Amino acid sequence: MTVPTSPRIETHPDILALRAHSEETTATTAAQAVEALALLCGVYLAASPWIVGFNAATNLTINNLIVGIAFACLVGGFGSAYERTHAMSWAAVGLALWTIVSPWVVAGHAFATRAVVSNVVIGAACCLIALACARMGLGRGTPGGRG
C-alpha cells in the first residue's frame, strides 16, 4: 500500500502570497525605519543606566540591561523573517510597558528622578514603535483583500 503524496505546504499559493506580502511590507522605507528605531531604543534602554547615571541602582540597572537586550533581539528578527515574527511585536509592547512601570516595581522608592524619566520616555517610545510593528502585521489580509 502506498501513501498518497501531498503537495508541499511551502508551494501552496496562499503561503506564497503571504510571504510576498511580508516581503513587500518589510521592504518599505517606513518599515525599515521603524525597525531601526526599535533596535536603537533597545540598545539605549540597555545602556541607559550608564548614559543617564543611575547605575548605582543595581536592580534597575540589571532590569534595564536585560529588557533592553531582549527588546533589541526581539525587534531585530522582524526584518529577516517578518512573516513569522510580526505577532511577536505584541511581546515587544509588553516589554515596553514593563519598562514604564519597572522603576516603581523593581526599585521601589529608592530611585532617582532621572531613572523614572528615562524609563518612562524610552518605554513610551518603545511602546509606540512596537505598536507600529504590530500595525504592519494587522493590515495583512488575503491577496486582493484589505491587506
Rank of each mutant, 00 (worst) to 15 (best):
T61Q: 12
Y44D: 03
E35T: 15
L60S: 04
A46F: 06
F71V: 14
P49A: 15
I66Y: 02
A70Y: 00
A30Q: 07
W50K: 06
Y44T: 05
V52T: 04
A27H: 11
A72H: 00
V34A: 03
G53D: 02
I69V: 13
P49S: 14
W50C: 04
L45R: 10
N63K: 09
A38Y: 04
V43P: 00
L60A: 02
A47G: 02
S48E: 08
I66V: 12
A38T: 15
Y44K: 08
I66L: 11
A33M: 12
A47V: 04
T29A: 15
A30R: 11
A56V: 08
A46V: 01
L37H: 14
A57R: 13
N63A: 05
L60G: 01
A57F: 01
F71Y: 02
L65C: 05
S48Y: 09
E24P: 15
N59Q: 14
A70G: 04
C41I: 12
T28K: 10
E35Y: 07
L39I: 15
I62Q: 00
A56I: 06
L40F: 05
N64R: 09
A33K: 07
L60E: 12
E35G: 15
I66A: 09
P49V: 10
N55C: 05
A57H: 09
T26A: 11
T25C: 03
F54N: 05
I69Y: 03
N55S: 11
V34S: 06
T29E: 15
T58L: 06
E24S: 10
T58D: 00
P49W: 13
I66D: 00
A27L: 08
G53V: 06
G53L: 03
G53C: 01
E35Q: 14
N59L: 10
A36R: 10
W50E: 05
C41M: 08
L45P: 10
N63C: 04
G68N: 02
L65E: 01
A38G: 15
G68C: 05
I69K: 10
V52I: 02
I69W: 02
S48V: 00
Q32K: 06
A30V: 13
T28C: 05
A70L: 03
G68R: 07
F71H: 02
A57E: 15
P49Q: 15
A38C: 09
N64C: 06
G68K: 07
L39G: 10
L60T: 04
A27K: 14
L37Q: 12
F54W: 06
L37W: 11
A33P: 14
T61L: 07
L39A: 13
I69F: 03
P49E: 14
N55L: 08
V43D: 03
L37K: 13
A38V: 15
V52S: 14
T25E: 01
G42N: 03
V34Y: 05
I69G: 04
A36D: 04
Q32L: 08
L60I: 06
L39E: 11
F71D: 02
A38I: 13
F54G: 04
A70T: 01
S48D: 07
F71M: 05
T28M: 09
P49R: 15
T29Y: 15
T26Q: 11
V43M: 07
I51Q: 12
S48K: 12
